[in-house]
Design a protein around this nucleic acid. Structure first.
Lengths: 196, 196, 196, 196
DNA sequence: GGTTAAGCGAGACGGTACGTCACGTCTTCCT
DNA sequence: AGGAAGACGTGACGTACCGTCTCGCTTAACC
């Protein structure tokens, strides 16, 4: 059955109210009752729709980041397919740091309320993308583990820390430094040490 | 006045009880009332001693990680001073991943209950150590940002993820791959791209 | 238009399910959703048919007590017309206590969910019957008020209490004692005190 | 430990607020949250103190009816000891109808939210009083059952019904008619019929 | 026997109150 | 006098139920 008209209206109202309150005060200072009140809706409705606070924040995140998914899978190069791996990685991190920066509050809320990052479908997609590109350029490296390390730089804590001094671009540069170093590294240079 | 005997006894009892319960069930599933009960103490005592849940977990962490501090600042090489930067970094990450792995539950609890990582004295010390060594070996790189990225790999989420498949050593290897790549990278190789 | 076949089938199924659940667990422990499920029907159907919980229980009561109505208005003596008032009253209370005893759970449910007893058509009919007979035998008494008092003995609480010890017949006896005392009382014996 | 000062203050505030709201709107139209708000207290406090709505109303009833207990057990005749049973019964019902009339709303609330009347300590005390006096005057009757019947007249529904027309005194008169009839009835008059 | 519109069934939905839980505080008692 | 004890106040959470609403289906009456 299609979503009822009033349901859709309330869904939007709740998301908008949640977005505003969460970005303004942070997830722990906002109760779902406040969200409900701000949306002009009863508390039960919020739970009915989004199960709990994590669900609500998750839906918000999806709304924000869902569109980005397309950009790096189907969009034009250098973000999308068609460019060499290194350039796609650089573009990906640039775009991602930017995206996360613009949604820090929500991301932080999400990290606090959700479980393991690695169980999150969005993170999983990002990781597959990054490790795929790494593997493409350097099949001899442990792309999976390296992917996790690189994406670790996108924890909201760190982003906030860098944003405080207005130096988010340093983070991008550093990430690009790392990828460059990895892709340029002579093959087998690290062989003997992996056994440690 | 020195700490009274009963106070010290209770302090220890609370820490032991908290440790056991937290590692068993995670921070959100354990109330301080349970901790108090398990320690054979009243709730007020727990708060009197540790202020709140974050304080209690912080004390536990300190107890566990405090000793390690000495190892990398004053201990014997390659962890302590005396070895080349790269070896010290390798040793540091090896030891740290091991340490965190053995205390994953507590670390996760700490991450959930504390504020920004970057405001935490332990993290700060780690970061100063890592970025110091990086700077020593490669003064031309942004050691500070790179330090944060490398330490990002020690988020409990990721450790847990790697431990699930018993592959924590892959994480160590990957970290060493990254440091090796960074330290071996031709100077200035990344210059032009940082401006992106 | 006559009631549709499926509608009739569902109506019966709902009544049967409601009856069973209500007598088993009491009205507050049974949701209409449970009733619907037990009847193999959607919740909306229950509301469509019976408006609300009070309506459903009311319908059940009607089903049970409706037949009795005939007994005391048109049936054979001593319950029906033809016998002296005292005997009819005795027969009425005997029959009524028995009837209520056999439907205690439903009666209790009904009392809880309906409004004032005195607004209920069934109760009204009972009261008119009883006060009519009283007035017939003793026009000098306040038959209306006495009728309410006598019928007060049929509150489910009291019936349950008496049934617990298997002494419902004591209640019948006591009621008959009261009616006998009232009808035998010398006229005007109470006159002076009513002014109190 | 004695009740803390703030606890006592809150207890009183809650009772006052509950009293006012309940008598004004009835129990089903008043939420404990409203009571809490009106009392200037958090919802949790109300539950902490009174467990649930039934508990709160029960406490209110106790407060109102507790004092009356003394009147008929230790007070001056004709209510208290010293007068003949019949006069004490008359006085008791007169006083009780008056008391209930003045607290109809609360009594109705109590009946709706509590369980069986017969399990209620106040009702039990009333019943023991009434049946004791009946037994004293007429040991040959079933004082226990008759006591329940007489007290049945004090159901709030009936009181409300009588109050509607300003005829609560008719109820008192009728009750006195019944007791007079019972006490005056020739001994053994009802013998043969009890076997029915 | 096919058509159709009114009644009916289904269950998602909005709303309200409830009771629970854990936190952190406060007073009081004990050592 | 400092520490321990636990009653207390607080507010968010998630649950349960009610009654409503919309939409799709069925069925019985009519062509």
């Amino acid at each position: 059955m299609a979503e009822r008209a009033d349901a859709a209206r309330n869904r939007r109202a709740i998301l908008r109210a949640a977005e505003e309150l969460l970005t303004a005060h942070g997830p722990d200072r906002v109760s779902l009752e406040q969200v409900a009140a701000a949306a002009g809706v009863a508390k039960g409705t919020v739970f009915h729709r989004f199960t709990n606070k994590a669900g609500l924040i998750g839906a918000l995140i999806m709304e924000r980041l869902g569109a980005f998914q397309q950009g790096y899978t189907e969009g034009p190069p250098p973000l999308g397919p068609g460019a060499p791996a290194r350039e796609r990685l650089d573009a990906f991190f640039t775009a991602l740091v930017d995206l996360v920066s613009r949604n820090v509050a929500l991301m932080a809320a999400h990290e606090r309320t959700s479980g393991h990052r690695q169980d999150n479908p969005i993170y999983t997609a990002w990781h597959e993308h990054v490790s795929g590109l790494l593997r493409e350029a350097r099949p001899d490296l442990d792309a999976e583990a390296l992917g996790h390390i690189l994406l670790g730089a996108l924890h909201s804590d760190l982003i906030v820390h860098m944003l405080r001094t207005g130096e988010a671009n340093r983070l991008v540069s550093a990430l690009q430094t790392v990828t460059a170093a990895l892709l340029d590294q002579p093959r087998g240079a690290n062989e003997g040490r992996a056994a440690l």
